[in-house]
Design a protein around this nucleic acid. Sequence first.
DNA 1: AAAATATTTAGTTATATTACTAAATATCAG
DNA 2: CTGATATTTAGTAATATAACTAAATATTTT
Lengths: 97, 97
Amino acid sequence: MLKFDKNCCRHEAEVFKALGHPTRLWIVKQLADGQEHCVCEFVEAVGIRFATMSQHLAILKNAGIIIDDKRGKQVFYRLACPCILPVLQCLGEKKQL
Amino acid sequence: MLKFDKNCCRHEAEVFKALGHPTRLWIVKQLADGQEHCVCEFVEAVGIRFATMSQHLAILKNAGIIIDDKRGKQVFYRLACPCILPVLQCLGEKKQL
DNA sequence: AAAATATTTAGTTATATTACTAAATATCAG
DNA sequence: CTGATATTTAGTAATATAACTAAATATTTT
């Protein structure tokens, strides 16, 4: 077996880690259809404080999963890349795992 | 937008969370070819203590990602289900995300 | 310019995670 | 049975995460 190299998995692990929270995973699913949504929509639907939501969104953004677009007073988020979708779907379909 | 339901994403989030650590993600990749490997192999390749490795393996096992099989003094781990593979591959191939 | 709205940042506290050491358990070899 | 090997469990300390409140920033409206 090859020696473990920490760096080889680091970014990928960061992406999984970002998805590894119910609220954040739900957010990404809401964006799965390609539509964008503003922070206030997420805040209302989830029922947490603005500040907390902002942190979750920052984690997803830093992992490269979502992108923000500020328009007027509001900030809209959308998926950075549709390539994240199969990752979600694979798990969503299978009830075994 | 629908209201957020914590339970709807809980198990899926647990799977992602388990994959969200470089060492654990690497372990799963080592098992990706369907072969099984014993704890001592992982310990040697990663360079951490037996106890620490045992904890990582327990997290993957509890998430339903791997299965253990005790034979003699050794414990062998393998993937619980090949359905986890596309989840890994989707990210591995794309360098964008 | 002042007030209102939307969001982020900073600071705090409780809880969770990670990796460690030491002790417990289980199996095999002599 | 005894000692050696492989692994897990328990306990601990440092660090990270998650949610909160309060304050800061940015944009629009009046």
